[in-house]
């Protein structure tokens, strides 16, 4: 187990290294990196200082080495717009994005799992078919348009919920959280639902397929032949088996959820790192873009690692595989 973990950590390190190389090469391939990394308004002296500081007068491999060192020390340049270290800027916006993404994931399980169970147990019923048709829309609809429609219906027409911002937050350890206040929840609900839509469909379909696949299996029949109540058969025997793929996929999708929060945050003016990156791209604040990229890659690598661990914990066949 320890060996496995070590191997995974080394692998993760390699992915990070590869990505940093790609980003680095990308920066150079587009043109003179000085134009990319330094504000166009900078004067000649400032340019010279930056070139020296960034080591742009040195050979390419040495530049990459410096870039790596900077990344390891958490120094990925300063934002031109905010005049703040890019990393600190993104870290400050990260809680809002994580709050949104976690809420969306919880929503997708709370909605997708029961609907999928129902559709799987009653595949030919009207409601079962309706749920499945609905899930096609969940996959097909571009999420930004759904976000607009949510605003149109719930914020503009009905006036029930606000259309933008985080609302009232309560600060814990210097970070504001919306989910602690009623007003914050009112602001959180629409964007989280918007972000969850794809995952709801995904969980729903996975659950339904799992139920359809599991029900005819011998061990379910055997469980029924033991005289177990239908509730116990479904909620223990069927559900336990479905949870493995659902948790795995939800975990793997968590990264995508964070990536897609770029769209949701733009629609609902949610002040997370997704909104920040779009704003930065539009004003060509490149250090922030590079920092965002490196942070996201790190996040993805971590998520994949955690999901693998979770999967191992959930499935005894994998967990105890070596012991037999």
């Amino acid at each position: 187990m320890a060996l496995w973990l070590l191997r995974r950590l080394v692998q993760a390190g390699f992915v990070m290294l590869a990505m940093s190389a790609i980003v680095f090469i990308g920066l150079h391939a587009i043109g003179n990196p000085i134009d990319i990394l330094i504000s166009p308004e900078a004067d000649q002296a400032e340019r010279a200082r930056a070139i020296a500081a960034l080591g742009l007068d040195k050979p390419l491999w040495e530049q990459y080495w410096l870039f790596l060192q900077g990344a390891l020390h958490g120094d990925l340049g300063r934002s031109f717009v905010f005049n703040e270290p890019a990393l600190r800027l993104i870290a400050g916006r990260m809680p809002a994005t994580l709050e949104l993404a976690v809420t969306a994931v919880l929503l997708s399980v709370c909605i997708g799992l029961p609907l999928g169970l129902y559709a799987g147990l009653h595949p030919n019923s009207f409601t079962g078919r309706l749920v499945m048709t609905g899930s096609i829309f969940g996959f097909s609809l571009p999420s930004f348009w759904v976000g607009l429609m949510l605003i149109m219906v719930f914020a503009v027409t009905l006036g029930w919920l606000p259309s933008s911002g985080r609302g009232e937050t309560i600060s814990i350890a210097g970070v504001g959280w919306s989910f602690l206040t009623v007003d914050g929840w009112r602001h959180l609900l629409l964007p989280a639902l918007n972000l969850a839509l794809f995952n709801i469909s995904l969980v729903l379909r996975l659950t339904r397929a799992g139920v359809r696949e599991t029900l005819p299996l011998d061990y379910i029949r055997f469980a029924r032949a033991k005289g177990l109540t239908p509730g116990r058969v479904i909620y223990v025997h069927v559900l336990r088996n479905i949870l493995i793929p659902v948790v795995t996929v939800i975990g793997l999708e968590f990264g995508s959820t964070i990536a897609f929060s770029v769209v949701t945050e733009s629609v609902f003016a949610w002040p997370g790192m997704g909104k920040l990156i779009i704003d930065s791209i539009n004003v060509l604040d490149r250090p922030v873009i590079v920092a965002y990229l490196m942070i996201t890659v790190a996040l993805f690598v971590t998520i994949n690692l955690v999901v693998d661990l979770l999967y191992t914990l959930l499935d005894p066949r994998v967990r105890l595989g070596g012991r037999r």
């Binding site: 992915v15 587009i30 990264g255 769209v263 791209i281 890659v297 993805f300």
Partner: peptide, 17 residues
């Protein structure tokens, strides 16, 4: 490597550059 990153993120980054 390509498939382990969401499409929107990759496309966004390419267009950013």
């Amino acid at each position: 490597l390509q498939l382990s990153f969401p499409a929107i993120l990759v496309a966004l980054m390419i267009l950013a550059f």
